[in-house]
């Protein structure tokens, strides 16, 4: 294999990017999120991840692969990234459906996504470092770096504000020094061995600008695409069932059938129908109590008001006193 993408000697630093519309419109009435490919770009966190990848690879004389999962609409952004002298790779998602709901995307299986990304990187060799933004502007479960670290068997250091090569390491080894915010303005400094997956905040660094030559070359270049079929995906272990979200709809509680008032007097009927003469539980403050007692109080409330049937064997286990569930 003579492709320089795959034969370069030196550490491999991967910038794992999430390219999305940075200015989506949200319908104030329905909450529907409308995204436009023209707004695609790198979030501040992803831009920081890319810049730190370039700096670290520069110090190590390594190479940078910038990878993003997405449809062809993200290619212009990847070309801008390629203009920086970075090898880019777009991983084609399994589902390319522009009409996919936001909630459906939110429920995507991040573990599966991590496996797809790791599989896509196989031709480039094992990555020494993967740098991600610590959050994305549209989904933001924040779980992907951890899943990537799990897939690679790498250490993870997440939510960093600084990431630099550790120049105290001798003997040809490599490691990183990372900084993370703590409360009250404190910072903690971490020694990060390799291989590692790090996520960084969008702070402290500014993404460099591409040269004219790089921009010109990238403007006309195709973006390599790696489509991963499920059959190619290595199964490191049994997949954990992921959360699935079905179609959403407006909550419409069922109508409850109430017995007709017995009286023929309109006033009494009105009082009965409106419940004006029915005693109601006043607001009650319970506590402070522990979680177990609080749960018992809630269960007792539900039983008292008929939402749970204590004689139902399936429900009895959830309402038992002192179960602590």
């Amino acid at each position: 294999m003579n492709d320089p993408r795959f034969t370069h000697v030196g550490p491999l630093v991967v910038a794992c990017l999430r390219i999305t519309d940075l200015r989506p419109e949200v319908d104030p009435l329905t909450g529907a999120v409308a995204r436009d490919a023209q707004g695609n770009g790198l979030s501040a966190a992803d831009a920081a991840a890319l810049e730190l990848s370039l700096r670290i690879a520069g110090v190590w004389s390594g190479r940078v692969v910038a990878l993003a999962v997405g449809p062809p609409a993200i290619d212009p952004v990847l070309r801008d990234v390629a203009a920086l002298g970075v090898t880019v790779l777009r991983v084609s998602p399994e589902t390319v459906d522009p009409d996919r709901g936001y909630a459906a995307e939110l429920a995507d299986d991040e573990q599966r996504l991590a496996r797809t990304i790791v599989a896509s990187l196989v031709p480039y060799g094992p990555p020494d470092l993967i740098v991600c933004g610590d959050r994305s502007t549209d989904r933001g479960t924040g779980a992907l770096p951890a899943f990537l670290a799990h897939q690679l068997g790498a250490v993870q250091a997440l939510g960093l504000v600084a990431l630099t090569p550790d120049d105290t390491v001798t003997g040809g080894g490599r490691a990183l020094i990372a900084e993370r915010r703590l409360d009250a303005g404190w910072r903690e400094r971490l020694g990060v061995p390799l291989p590692a997956v790090c996520s960084v905040e969008g702070a402290g660094v500014r993404l460099r600008r591409a040269s004219l030559g790089g921009a010109l070359t990238a403007a006309a270049a195709p973006v390599p695409v790696n489509g991963i079929s499920p059959a190619d995906r290595p199964e490191r272990e049994e997949a954990i069932p992921a959360v699935r979200i079905g179609p959403t709809r407006v909550f419409e509680p069922r109508a409850r059938v109430l017995p007709a008032p017995e009286s023929t007097d309109p006033r009494v009927r009105l009082l009965a129908l409106t419940g004006a003469l029915v005693a109601h539980d006043p607001p009650t403050v319970i506590g402070p109590v522990g979680p177990s007692e609080a749960a018992d109080e809630l269960m007792a409330f539900l039983v008292r008001h008929g939402y749970l049937d204590p004689t139902d064997p399936e429900q009895a286990g959830t309402s038992g006193k002192g179960t602590g569930r």
């Binding site: 993408r5 004219l212 070359t217 195709p222």
Partner: peptide, 16 residues
């Protein structure tokens, strides 16, 4: 397939 990397990029002076 050409790869969009700086390695292939012309120098600024060659952009004509």
């Amino acid at each position: 397939m050409a790869e969009p990397t700086m390695a292939d990029a012309p120098g600024p002076e060659s952009a004509e």
